[in-house]
Design a binder for these strands. Structure first.
Lengths: 342, 342
DNA sequence: AACATAAACTTTATCGATAACTAAATATCA
DNA sequence: TGATATTTAGTTATCGATAAAGTTTATGTT
């Protein structure tokens, strides 16, 4: 910038103004500057600019898990929407580890991003308090933290849990197991939904049919496999499994099949998230759809809203989308023939 | 920082020194400062620091595609390795669009990240020239750009293409099709490998058995489906498909099955990337494994190496890993029973 | 002609830190 | 004991921009 100013014999500020389309610059100088800028392939230093203006056009998306495609898909839609409004999105992976998350958040904060979208790992609120103290707007995604009054965009998980479990009940399952997700709002609510559906149907709640993967961290196929092996050892044998997410369900599928049992005849199976590959599995997987596109777009809008109304206090809206049951072969039995699938 | 200095009646520089563990600070002052830092929950402003030092401890990973899990998996290992060395990794998605990539690169550059790891969308080298002109070290990942002498970490794609095609030939396929990937080094090399394997086996090369998805962008299931429908219309009918990646192969699988054909009896199928779900598919998918963990770790090391040797000219190494054939049901026929799978 | 207005720039201060140098107080040693 | 080291802390300049206020010069107004 200095170079440009020197070359053209104008002040640095003039150059700066040209770059920001400031009204008071002559047409002639403006063109001279712009040309030189092009020649030198100059780009303003965002750190310096950010230092003064406090804005960087960056939004960070903090996710606990990348392997399960749910967050990746949402990221895609988020990114598209934010990009359309002039923001850049960066993804930051926390490995479902709240200590890592705390570090990343701190680092991002001091880097000076404009907003954060967080699917939190752990409900330690100190990180959030830190964000608030820095006046950086943020949106909670997928995972709610009750103590915080930040905007939240997510899915009605209690209902998701109920729907999945109720569906298994509808097709005649009596001994339904649940493989738990991480101990955060979606995991807890889906479990709750599972319990309440059982209760409403007058089925007993067996603690040994509720398992949590031994290993922590993001829930993947191998966790589902391991958990299901333990479940299959419980007698009398279960006849249905509702897994927290699709990867867990896929692991469960492998465990069930390799134990020589049939799906859905011996054990019916349903997951949650509706990953694109669910249809293509050995046994197409029933699941609960969460509409990642809608989630992504709505979350982006929530963030953009915060970014616009700089001063005004935000109403801190809570947006909860309705989940949708998708029945495929893994839970299709004679008794009832619900439509859906695809 | 100023506040802390004022409160404790020391200079800002002293505080700064304490924070950086500079040798010349008294034990007493050091402790006083540290305590106040904790009380105020203070974090140094990285923009300001970066402005002076030129370092931010940030590494950006630029990927064209998030849906196919290949890059997500690599990202996980990359992130782990970089984190172990004190760097933070941010993922940036370019939608397989070189214009978007150019923008993101520019934005990241002016943000002042320490290094970039790029799986490029398009071989427009102007972005790379820009990066070089800013003296930001970068590593090319997965996709090579011949004109550039930056370090490269990837897979021997020519061999991958050969292995996959040769395998189909080995099991008796005569009319083998290929669904192309994006027009960059992996796509081109795998196609080349496909051609050379056919040639070596004395099989004719039919141009109408080589298709490219109509729609551009990241290759997904639906692209494989669409491309395969066109392939199936070609007479005499093909008896084998080698798809650029696993999602394409899965799309192909759906198209083949819904056309009433059997896999592998009528059409044998092989993909590339070895996504974790390949095993669990309706018909377990043969594929070429690329060892995402090794790729991630090696790429991270290459980047770290560049970050260390600040001054010295880097040897610009090229690291090409050997792919591995994984045979599963989608290409298992009587004739030969190769082992592998799992 | 005198003054107000506008256009087109320039000056100065600042964002929040660090680097390089300087200064004072204390320690060490012949 | 005086001289040189060593500790510890403070000064000043700078990184690359922007905001706010100031300065010319040209134009219009009555």
């Amino acid at each position: 910038m200095k170079d440009i100013a020197r070359d053209l014999d104008v002040s640095v500020v003039t150059v700066s103004k040209v770059l920001r389309d400031h009204p008071d610059i002559g047409k002639a100088t403006k063109e001279r500057v712009l040309q030189r800028v092009k020649e030198l392939n100059y780009t303003p230093n965002l750190m310096a600019r950010g230092l003064v203006t406090g804005r960087t056009s960056l939004v960070a998306f903090i996710v606990p898990d990348l392997a399960s495609s749910f967050f990746s898909e949402v990221a895609i839609h988020l990114s598209n929407e934010l990009r359309a409004h002039g923001y850049f999105m960066l993804i930051c992976w926390t490995k479902e580890d709240s200590a890592i998350q705390a570090k990343e958040v701190q680092h991002l904060l001091s880097l000076g991003i404009d907003a954060m979208i967080i699917a939190t790992s752990g409900d330690d609120i100190s990180s959030f308090k830190l964000i608030e103290s820095r006046n950086v707007p943020y949106v909670l995604f997928d995972r709610e933290v009750p103590q915080l009054k930040a905007p939240f965009v997510g899915v009605e998980d209690l209902l998701a849990g109920k729907m999945a479990t109720q569906h298994l009940i509808d097709i005649g399952c009596k001994r339904i197991a649940h493989i738990c997700g991480p101990d955060m709002s979606p995991g807890r609510r889906r479990l709750e939904g599972y319990k309440s559906a059982l209760q409403q149907a007058g089925l007993p709640l067996k603690e040994d049919l509720i398992v949590t993967p031994l290993e922590g961290g993001p829930r993947g196929i191998q966790h589902g496999f391991e958990a299901t092996q333990r479940l299959l050892a419980v007698k009398p044998r279960l006849d249905g499994i509702f897994a927290f997410n699709d990867p867990l369900a896929i692991g469960a599928m492998e465990a069930i099949l390799s134990a020589g049992l049939r799906i859905p005849q011996d054990v019916a199976l349903i997951g949650c998230a509706n990953i694109p590959l669910g249809r293509a599995l050995r046994i197409p997987l029933s699941t609960i759809d969460q509409d990642t596109k809608e989630l992504g777009v709505r979350t982006a809008r929530a963030a953009l809203l915060l970014l616009q109304k700089t001063g005004k206090t935000s109403p801190a809206r809570k947006l909860v989308l309705k989940p949708k049951l998708i029945v495929r072969q893994s839970s299709e039995r004679q008794s009832k023939k619900k439509a859906a699938a695809k």
